[in-house]
Amino acid sequence: TEVVWVNNVLDEIQIHLKEQPFAMVVKDLEHESRLMRAMFTTLDVRLLRECSVPLHFVDKASHAMPRKVLAAVDLSRPEDQFQGFNDRLINEALKLAMQCKAQVEILYAYDMTSMQTDAENLGHKSFWFGSNLAESLHEAQSEAFRELTERNGIEPEACHMVMGDPAKVLTIFCEAQGIDIVVMGRIHHRGLAKYVGSTVERVLYKMPSSVLVITPQAPTV
């Protein structure tokens, strides 16, 4: 155990991560006001953007060990997905649940509104989002989700596909289901679809549970 008192915490963390192959950074979630978050980038968000190893943000721990673990997957824009990343998120959730003897749930928040916005920006609203195509997209996403959960051995009753904004769906689902920890990706897409300030940053200070954030490049825990 090493205790270090420094002015620039982020720099010191990054130095330690470069010097030794740490498997994870565990940190308490600091709740700052919206005004403070608007004016300054918090240490939590800076870690999200700059830290390559898994980040476990601990908050509101109701139980000494997690009883319910949720893996939040994303199947949108498959052409931009990091290959196998959703499988890895589920695997991390399963390993954590096995160690804690916890229950595992899988959630895919299916954002049809975002797809419609993308289509409108391309000027193809009437072509892309006729009722037939919307139904076809939903069926394709449902099938992809079923294949993902089946190959990872998840029982159907533990799989949830909910239409809506991912950030809102996640927070409502976790509150309603009493989730202790959410396993999710810092980014799910690359290329033009990759952006900082994604779902993780939007939900980090709203979640009623702890959050384990995985990056595609990070080593397996």
Rank of each mutant, 00 (worst) to 15 (best):
H138C: 11
D165G: 09
A158H: 14
M161K: 11
M163K: 13
N152G: 06
H160R: 11
G164S: 06
N132R: 14
W128F: 14
Q141H: 11
L148C: 07
D165I: 10
M163F: 14
F145W: 07
N152I: 06
A144G: 11
E147P: 01
V162K: 07
F145L: 02
M163A: 15
V162E: 09
A158I: 01
E150Q: 13
V162R: 09
E139W: 06
F145K: 03
S136L: 11
R151P: 00
H138D: 14
L137K: 11
V162P: 05
L133K: 13
E155K: 05
R146P: 04
A144N: 12
D165A: 08
A144C: 13
L133T: 11
E135I: 00
V162L: 08
E143P: 05
M161S: 09
A167T: 11
G153Q: 04
G164N: 08
H160V: 04
A134R: 09
F145Y: 11
S142L: 12
F127N: 03
N132I: 04
E150R: 05
E155P: 00
A140P: 01
V162F: 08
E150S: 03
E139F: 02
A134K: 07
F127E: 12
S136P: 02
L133C: 02
D165L: 10
L133Y: 12
E143D: 15
V162Q: 08
A140Q: 15
L148I: 02
T149I: 04
N152S: 02
G153P: 06
P156D: 05
P156A: 03
F129C: 04
G153C: 08
A144K: 12
A144T: 01
G164V: 04
N132E: 13
H160Y: 14
A140S: 15
L133W: 11
L148G: 07
E150K: 04
G130W: 06
F129G: 02
S142P: 09
F129W: 09
L133V: 05
I154W: 01
P156G: 02
Q141D: 06
A167D: 14
W128I: 00
G153E: 07
L148F: 03
G164T: 04
R151M: 05
M163I: 10
S142F: 08
E139I: 00
M161T: 01
N132L: 10
R146M: 06
E139H: 14
G130N: 15
S142N: 12
A134Y: 07
S136W: 10
E157G: 03
E150G: 00
E135K: 15
